[in-house]
Design a protein around this nucleic acid. Structure first.
Lengths: 156, 156
DNA sequence: TATTGTTATACTCTATAACTATA
DNA sequence: TATAGTTATAGAGTATAACAATA
């Protein structure tokens, strides 16, 4: 007996239970390729960028805290922070009272690069969403937010 | 002078030009983790699954054609087809008239595993989209399709 | 003894290049 | 010579484990 379910396809119109995953993968790959193209000339890979995101969102924090924030491991974080430190984008400073802990803080140059990335990403984001109406873009971001943050109330 | 642009955040409510990319990444990672959990007990990794998808969408084809379909390289494809062949899910048969080419064809077992994956993925997909209304789920899939397949008309 | 960070090591995956067999 | 497939090798990235310093 044949299955009642539609089979997954790598084409538009997939009605299978894998459609969401395949579409998210394809849409992400496309968006990521373009946005990484913005970061690359600035000397940033995604792993560096996401650390800057965490630092600018949560403020200066330890490497261990960064590991929790970005879902990495401490050995990898050492290298990422090394890269950022050597590029002059963050500083390591021992925490007074517990010298095991190094507080990672963005430098002025780090924040400047971070802001420049945003300026360069603006037209890229507009181009990515160019096929959608303005209301549709906001709707997509809302639906994705509810998918990415289940159980959290949507920002009004 | 400070930038006028909102800065990227790893939290809901991000209004930055990186928001779409970060949300797609997070939503994909969540969906992928759950859907790969469906494939793993069947002995399939994503690279095997996407080859089965291509074969069931485009019919039997050469390894070279599979490379084009999934965006891989021929050395990697050899190993993926090796795995599928050893598991009895596909066959390699020389093409009559050009014995350089091996036609890859899903076996009955290959199609059965493919269909079983769909059956197991059904409740997972429902759970992933559970926070959305039924109309919203269809809308999200439509918007993602237009993002993932720019320039192609949306399926009605 | 437990924890932060570092270093060393191993492992996975992919990409590159060399090789074979057919054409 | 050109192509399909295979094999061998190397590279990037990550994860695991041992280590040093501090608590």
């Amino acid at each position: 007996m044949a299955s009642r379910l539609a089979r997954a396809t790598d084409r538009p119109g997939d009605g299978s239970p894998f459609a969401l995953g395949l579409l998210l993968r394809r849409a992400h790959d496309r968006a990521a390729a373009q946005l990484l193209g913005v970061l690359r000339p600035l000397g940033l890979e995604f792993r560096h960028f996401i650390v800057l995101v965490s630092l600018h969102t949560g403020g200066p924090m330890s490497q261990q805290a960064l590991v929790g924030a970005v879902g990495s491991d401490k050995a990898t974080m050492v290298r990422v922070v090394d890269d950022l430190e050597h590029a002059g984008l963050v500083t390591r400073t021992p925490r007074p009272g517990d010298r095991r802990v190094h507080t990672i803080t963005p430098t002025a140059a780090g924040t400047a690069v971070f802001d420049t990335a945003h300026q360069h990403a603006e037209p890229v984001a507009e181009h990515l969403l160019g096929h959608l109406g303005s209301g549709e873009a906001a709707l997509l971001l809302d639906l994705l937010t509810r998918l990415a943050f289940p159980g959290e109330a949507t920002i009004p």
